[in-house]
Design a protein around this nucleic acid. Structure first.
Lengths: 356, 356
DNA sequence: TTGAAAGCGATACCAT
DNA sequence: ATGGTATCGCTTTCAA
């Protein structure tokens, strides 16, 4: 645990001044420092395994190249981690480091997390949530370039840019997939009513049905919750009736597991007797379900990448323009809002409507 | 985005010197600074919303109060996030901040992540993995106090302390639970053979069977994989035979979902005809399964907390002694290894053995 | 009781 | 071409 080599150590070893070391190691050697000295400096630096002290650099330059990410529960929860993954990719590509602080859903920790990050002089801030939700933006976020991912400014006059999934078209395309397979009696098992994503996905569903000129039976659309048992009970109700839907769209993949469990218990084969769709393309769940789940994937990586790109642009303009890799289309950008399209993933849990 | 107030600003406003500000704000005012000045300083500080620049502090004090956490995929994966949660709890309680870098399973990024953290002068490092595994410890970790969570030093002469779950007793207690319910024909559906956790859990299973003097049928114990479909296919084999086990222990909760799906398809009621046990107590899965899953919970938070406590003790001795809250017992500490016990969670998927 | 000054590590300007 | 010096914000010692 001996001290790391400093620029002074390198200078001594090379028999030059600290200034020379600084110039050479930052590529500004030519024209300022003799070729010979340059070689000696580089030699000494590598011998001592010199790398500059980022703390000292930050103090000197008044920029840390650190982006602070605050999350409500992304780290500890099983979801949406890929938003951070996508954001980090972009940050790293630009020589930035991200530091993540998770408040574990304790909103009272928001401000202090932001202050801690601000005390550490982060160059920018990003707030990431699990699940789409309104956010009371911590005040500190207005003091440096900031951006919101998967959440949006809840105040009457929003100030921060946010990146969210296009839930309406997600819901619509899910239902359209089923419509194309010939289904007409489609149920929509929504999550908890408290999520702002729920009405949007339902709106998409209704849009698809309307375009196909099929009336939506109100008893076919209801909020159930987000968990396996919610899906199970919802499906048991739907499927035990004499007249049952031929397809069920679930607002997430765990609901779909519950539905599959119910179908199996009732002796219904999937997709022969019943088509099931999930939502989220939850990692290690959707792809390995039996049968593998057709689902609407949330563009988590893309969202994180888009948000970070935006943020870095605010910080330095010379970041090359982003390549938004939307799934089924391009991200749309309206004012403070960027919507990234969801992506239909067709697997085996959906199939043609059964013959009567 | 105006500049933050510095100690100098506070000093000016209070009409004193920087030194006085520093002394007072660090509690060393009494006996050094006049009562009156103290008040003026505190007043000025709060008016200017002064908080010290952590970067400058770090440079000056040669300690950053930052712990770097490197993870192989904890952030982006749905698992084991609570290790970081538990670690962060402890760190925050001691005035430390954690910064997490996820390498997304790219081992070649390990070294550079550690170097980046080291350049930023972290006071200590922790490596956290998803799932128990051997680790090629990045060299840089040996340069500052470091600890391993959920992984262990793969080298011939390990140097770093590690904290891992007690998988043997986890496996044993899972099977014992079933034994107590009267089961005799118990199958063990293990995960992928590549995981070091698998042989340990199996060893625990065999231990329990041996203690009960029940021979283990070799066709009842096999590695399947970790996913829903693996559980499904494993169970279909096991349950379609004329002589089928009355209980199945799964090496994780997703395997258990697959088993439940298979049971439902075969018309077997759980737990009446078949008891199913999971492992992990995976968040939003185990508790909401239908029926709710009896499972062996991994002590993730405790592991993270134990590892961080250990690390902070290395950094400063004056950290109050930890209160290891093991689930079913106390953490055991042998040499470089701390094992934290797993915790049996009894729910509804296990029940008495069916009458013949 | 107070303020001046050194120093943490690096950079950039300005003499030489 | 080169090295001395101020500076970033803060703490700590030392002298007044």
């Amino acid at each position: 645990m001996q001290r790391k080599a400093t620029a002074l150590d390198v200078a001594k070893r090379a028999g030059v001044s600290r200034s020379a070391v600084s110039l050479v190691l930052n590529g500004r050697g030519d024209g300022n420092v003799a070729k010979e000295s340059q070689d000696r400096i580089r030699q000494a630096a590598s011998e001592l395994k010199y790398s500059p002290n980022a703390i000292a650099l930050s103090l000197r330059n008044q920029r840390t190249r650190v982006i602070g990410i605050v999350s409500d529960e992304v780290v500890v929860s099983p979801f949406d981690g890929n938003i951070i993954g996508g954001a980090d990719d972009v940050a790293r590509a630009h020589g930035f480091v991200t530091v993540v602080m998770d408040t574990e859903r304790d909103a009272s920790r928001d401000e202090s997390a932001v202050e801690t990050l601000l005390d550490r002089q982060v160059d920018g801030l990003m707030y990431v949530t699990v699940g789409l939700k309104p956010l009371d933006v911590p005040h500190g976020m207005l003091r440096v370039p900031s951006v919101l991912a998967n959440c949006f400014d809840n105040s009457p006059s929003p100030q921060l840019h946010h990146v969210i999934p296009d839930e309406v078209s997600g819901g619509r395309e899910a239902t359209e997939h089923l419509l194309q397979l010939g289904h007409r009696d489609i149920a929509f098992l929504a999550g908890a009513a408290t999520s702002p994503a729920v009405p949007l996905r339902i709106a998409g569903h209704r849009e698809a049905m309307a375009r196909a000129a099929i009336p939506v039976r109100e008893d076919r659309v209801f909020t159930a919750g987000w968990d396996i048992n919610d899906g199970f009970h919802g499906a048991m109700g739907l499927l035990s009736a004499t007249e049952r839907p031929t397809a069920i769209v679930c607002a997430n993949d765990r609901l779909a597991i519950g539905v599959a469990l119910a179908a199996a218990r009732l002796g219904l084969a999937v997709p022969r007797d019943l088509s099931i769709m999930g939502y989220d393309d939850e990692s290690r769940i959707a792809a390995t379900m039996v049968p593998a789940l057709t689902t609407m994937a949330l563009p988590l990586r893309e969202m994180g990448a888009a948000a970070m790109t935006m943020l870095l642009e605010q910080i330095e303009d010379r970041v090359q323009t982003p390549t938004p890799r939307g799934g089924t289309g391009l991200a749309t950008n309206a004012g403070l809002e960027t919507m990234v399209p969801c992506r239909l993933v067709v697997r085996e849990s959906t199939g043609p409507v059964p013959a009567l």
